[in-house]
Design a protein around this nucleic acid. Structure first.
Lengths: 293, 293
DNA sequence: GTTATCCATCCGTTTTTCGGATATATAAAA
DNA sequence: TTTTATATATCCGAAAAACGGATGGATAAC
């Protein structure tokens, strides 16, 4: 492999321009350079790229194939160069976004579309997990930016920006006995099984109201179990209203529940990691998404 | 874009080997070359690829990304080089195989597997068409090799090798009146509609037996129509026995049909195009597939 | 026949590449 | 602590190449 990128460029440009001379003009080089560049390339490859019997050189069969390969090489090079420029301008080349699985992922779809259009060369990685996962991933640099529900204090290395609030809804199955008491008291709730969210890693579980409760590590599993009549639960409103559960769940009044039923959604990042331009943009864009919430 | 492939190679190799010196040894070059190659590369890109504060250089965040890009460029280059060697050895880089749509394509599947394993860098194109299409495509160099049923004389520019014979079966729907006459005479057949194959391009159609006949350009359409009781037809046995038609068709005796009911399958190529090693191999491999037919 | 292009080749100058030598820093071994 | 081995960066002279201009021969258009 003795050929150079210059030779490939001379080759491709000459094909595109129709002649070596035109190629040389396009490249701003002497014709003799293009001529010998291609001659050397042919010598290296071991066969002729052009049939020179006509007035203008025409690609040989092998030349056609090599043209495709050469273009592929050059376009890879251009990609490298483009990303190098982005990097040297201080823009991020790769970002990992960690999203709490309780965050309605659909609401982020148009955000992801925006990202793909605005930063076409960015390598975006999206990972989902529980609140604990998100915090841990940001802290150990597995992820750069996290979107999560704020339930308990976070590590001191993390910076949290609250971007919206969600109410909890009290839900039961349409067949559940509690549907007879639309405004259940604490005592009434206590008679039935409660399904409580619990972070996967076994951190301190949420406080349960009913003495009879199960822990489940996903709101989506919880609503699934609730819809089958296993018990009642407090889940974020957007999950209660999810299309999957439409018609299967009944929402009851939370008038007699003393606990705070509001959770905050926030964006986290490491304190010691500066925000590059893309991360800044994402920060604002995600805030905008949930502004009305 | 001022960097060279040598610089990328020095970069990638040094990362893989763990140090510039080790990289230089691996590449058989002086250490100073690798050192300055990487320094020049960094100068061109506009940022540092390595953090040199430790004893051994470690990749920066941007360096990690550039490593991926550089590897992509080099692997494209290796592909180009590999195909160039193949080409300079006289092996084909790309072949187009045209297959008559009446040929049971499933019987070629293991052949295609073989090809992909044996010639991993070959660009194979497979196109399907009627017999006329195949012949035309070979002649106008759209395809290099064709597999077809031999029904009528081919152009003098083509070379045909017969590789097998197939009998025609006389088929009707299970509900068709002809099922009452298992050995139908010419006159009996003449009373019912015949479905006759006809090449798409409107060449001379096959001779029809029944005065009442439709022309259809695909054996698969014909068997479909036959199975719905539209008429009777002569189709290659493997098509009559196709799983799609299983149980819907009845085969009748062809004892009273005077016409030749044997079609030959063949491989065609242009007379003036030499067979490269891959084409020769394909030629033999395809022959082997249908040897028992 | 004239003109305009095209390609290959030659040639002298300029630039770059290349490997060795050297200076310096760091980690492990003595 | 000193020694040793191994790093990287830089300098330098020789060798190699890249480079543009000039030239010649061939071809198509005018």
């Amino acid at each position: 492999m003795n050929w150079t990128l210059d030779q490939l460029e001379a080759f491709v440009t000459s094909v595109k321009q129709g002649s070596f001379s035109a190629g040389a003009r396009k490249l701003g080089k002497a014709q003799s350079r293009v001529s010998s560049a291609i001659a050397n390339l042919e010598a290296d490859l071991g066969f002729e790229l052009f049939d020179r019997s006509a007035r203008l050189p025409v690609l040989t069969v092998l030349g056609e194939e090599m043209l495709v390969e050469a273009q592929a090489v050059l376009s890879q090079c251009q990609r490298l160069q483009a990303r190098a420029i982005i990097g040297s301008n201080g823009e991020e080349l790769a970002l990992t976004l960690a999203v709490d699985e309780a965050v309605p992922i659909l609401s982020l779809e148009s955000f992801f579309c925006d990202v793909s259009l605005r930063f076409p060369l960015l390598k975006l990685t999206i990972i989902n997990g529980s609140q604990d996962d998100i915090a841990r991933w940001i802290e150990d640099k597995t992820a750069d930016l996290g979107v999560l529900f704020h339930l308990k204090p976070l590590s001191e290395h993390l910076e949290l920006a609250i971007i919206g609030q969600f109410n909890h809804a009290l839900v039961v199955s349409v067949n559940h006995p509690l549907t007879n008491t639309p405004i259940p008291t604490y005592a009434q709730l206590n008679q039935y099984r409660q399904l409580v969210i619990r972070n996967r890693l076994g951190g301190a579980p949420e406080k349960a109201i009913s003495v009879q409760h199960w822990y489940v590590d996903s709101y989506y599993h919880i609503t699934g179990l609730v819809s089958r009549g296993i018990g009642w639960a407090l889940v974020p409103e957007h999950i209660a209203n999810d299309q999957w559960n439409h018609g299967k769940l009944v929402e009851l009044s939370t008038e007699h529940i003393p606990d705070s039923l509001v959770v905050e959604m926030g964006i986290v990042k490491r304190l010691d990691q500066g925000k590059g331009p893309i991360m800044s943009w994402m920060y604002d864009a995600i805030k905008d998404i949930f502004k009305g919430s």
